[in-house]
């Protein structure tokens, strides 16, 4: 018992004496953090976000199947977010006291939502556009060719398989219909009201991918049957 009391007392002393640490994982820095510590961690958090935004912008630039209207919206969001974070960094670096620095630090998380909204938004829109612009047209063309082959060979026994293939494509189209616009419409306030808002959109896109994967398998099976 006495050993436990001593250990607890020692732990309390060590904790009290430990230097205050600001972690990027916590949008609220510890109460004992100094202005310098908050500024240092805040600058780091901003730099990480700016780097991630640069990487996303580069990928969007290389995404050939991205709808041009979607590209403009995403690039505008990234540009606005980047300039907001750069202004915030200046503000944070010039913060006169810990309270101001703490407010600026919180703002990195609460006002921009780079990881929770901006980046997922960019990647989901690019992914959905790619599926709509490339995957679905290829599968539809394959279904047309397979239908012609079925007719030419008189393989009525494959009609149901062809219908399954078309049904999977249609399911994916239904899932993807308007999904990119839904993703683009998500703002920081929407995330605050419902933190799962982007996750729900990503899950719908994943459902579409599953349907399209099934369609590819169905089409390959049909092609093998027709050889």
């Amino acid at each position: 018992m006495s050993t436990m009391i001593v250990a607890a007392a020692l732990a309390a002393i060590l904790t009290a004496g430990a230097p205050a640490a600001v972690t990027d994982g916590d949008p609220t820095p510890p109460a004992r953090a100094t202005v310098g510590e908050i500024q240092q961690q805040g600058d780091l958090a901003i730099e990480r976000r700016l780097t991630a935004l640069d990487a996303a912008e580069l990928r969007l630039g290389n995404a050939q199947s991205l709808d041009e209207g979607h590209r403009s919206s995403l690039e505008a969001t990234i540009t606005d977010t980047r300039s907001g974070l750069e202004s915030l960094r200046s503000e944070l670096d010039g913060a006169p006291d810990a309270a101001s620095a703490r407010d600026d630090y919180r703002s990195i998380f609460s006002d921009y939502r780079v990881y929770a909204v901006v980046l997922p938004q960019s990647y989901v829109v690019a992914g959905a556009d790619r599926a709509e612009a490339v995957t679905i047209p290829r599968l539809q063309a394959a279904a047309e060719a397979l239908e012609a082959a079925i007719d030419a060979q008189g393989r009525d026994d494959l009609a149901d398989d062809l219908a399954d293939l078309r049904s999977e494509i249609q399911k994916a189209q239904d899932d993807l219909d308007g999904l990119a616009d839904r993703a683009l419409a998500v703002a920081v306030d929407d995330f605050d009201a419902d933190p799962a808002v982007m996750q729900d959109i990503t899950l719908t896109a994943r459902d579409a991918v599953l349907s399209l994967r099934s369609a590819v398998v169905d089409a390959r099976t049909l092609a093998d049957e027709l050889r």
Binding site: Y115, P120, Y123, G127, A131, A142, T202, A219
Partner: peptide, 22 residues
């Protein structure tokens, strides 16, 4: 079908990146 599967891989990578970021 090869092209469709390839573009699906691209879409899946983008969705993974979206989840990683979140």
């Amino acid at each position: 079908l090869g092209e469709a599967a390839g573009s699906l891989d691209d879409t899946e990578r983008l969705l993974d990146d979206a989840d990683d970021a979140a």
